[in-house]
């Protein structure tokens, strides 16, 4: 089983899979989403993680966070809700204990950064800037699972701009900002954050959601609300990636419910330059390898020489050739 699978994964690709995000070169557009891939080594029993274009590691904050009480997870049709709440041991622990263990894998480790205050974001980013093998960070201004900070930055445009500008000043490497889907106008945020100096945008984070146990007449999650992820959110994510792509000129990274190569290709067509796989890793820890191979097959089958040609290649119906963001 394992032997055969490995051989299949190692087919030489025919198309050019490299993509560029800010100053980063990814060997392919397939990366794994923050909070869904640990730090990477959790998956080495299942696959060769250095084949990934990149790994967005767990949300990292200034100090230790124990996360939320349990239950922290509720399953739903085609998805799940989580309320992990940024559990992590803090940036210093990351630098001293995690970084040495991951720095030699041949992929891009991008640290997902979170905080309760702008100062905390800046402090974490400044410390990470000094790490040679961390080529970029992703600002999580969209976590629905923490009381203060988190989503507040992502759903209030002036705050989103302020935190991006503050980090931009002290962080010279690739700065990606992760957008919240819990807003009315994605283009408004996308443009403002581009203007604040981000090198790329990633979206979407989880959708604020709720699960109820009717028998017990209680919420399922200890925090009552949580973040919805998985295939259930894919159509929403596609629409938002498409809107963001048409609003900015920096690259967009698509996230939300990607379970296979076809899903990933849909995001590329909508305008994503690269994609992140989140929840699917829990069901198939080797799914990202299959997505890489599937994208390669698609490119060959459709006669594309580079995956970069796919980005935004969506053919719109007549009369719809110009993007007009809708306001709801």
């Amino acid at each position: 089983m394992l032997g055969r699978a490995r051989i299949k994964y190692q087919t030489n690709h025919m198309a050019d899979l490299t993509v560029h995000i800010g100053g980063l070169e990814l060997k392919n557009p397939v990366t794994t989403a923050s909070g869904c891939f640990g730090y990477g080594p959790e998956f080495t029993d299942f696959m060769d993680i250095s084949r990934l274009g990149g790994i967005f590691v767990k949300g990292t904050t200034g100090g230790l966070r124990e996360g939320n009480p349990y239950p922290r997870m509720a399953e739903t049709h085609s998805g799940m809700l989580n309320s992990v709440g940024l559990q992590n041991k803090g940036v210093d622990y990351f630098i001293d204990h995690i970084y040495p263990a991951i720095k030699d894998y041949k992929t891009n480790f991008i640290v997902n950064v979170s905080g309760s205050t702008i100062d905390e974001y800046v402090e974490v980013a400044e410390k990470l800037a000094g790490l040679e093998k961390i080529p970029g960070i992703e600002l999580n201004i969209s976590c629905p699972n923490v009381k203060e900070g988190g989503m507040v930055f992502g759903t209030h445009c002036p705050s989103a701009v302020a935190v991006t500008e503050a980090v931009r000043k002290i962080f010279p490497k690739t700065l990606i900002v992760k957008l919240s889907p819990n807003v009315t106008s994605v283009p408004e945020f996308a443009k403002a954050i581009e203007g604040a100096g981000a090198d790329a945008l990633s979206l979407i984070n989880t959708l604020l959601a709720m699960a109820i146990d009717a028998e017990k007449r209680k919420p399922v999650l200890a925090t009552v609300t949580g973040g919805l992820s998985g295939p259930a959110i894919k159509p929403v994510a596609l629409r938002m990636v498409w809107e963001a792509y048409h609003s900015v000129s920096i690259p967009v990274i698509g996230i939300g419910g990607i379970m296979n190569a076809t899903d990933a290709i849909e995001f590329l067509l909508a305008g994503a330059a690269a994609i992140q796989i989140g929840t699917a890793n829990f069901i198939d820890p080797a799914v990202s390898m299959k997505v890489i191979n599937g994208i390669d097959d698609y490119l060959v089958r459709h006669g594309f020489s580079s995956v970069r040609e796919l980005t935004g290649k969506l053919e719109l119906p007549g009369g719809f050739n110009r993007f007009r963001p809708k306001t709801f």
Partner: peptide, 15 residues
């Protein structure tokens, strides 16, 4: 506990 992954990657089964 409720578990999404079972192998330490999702942090949903915390106690």
């Amino acid at each position: 506990n409720t578990m999404a992954c079972g192998f330490g990657a999702c942090l949903t089964c915390a106690r």
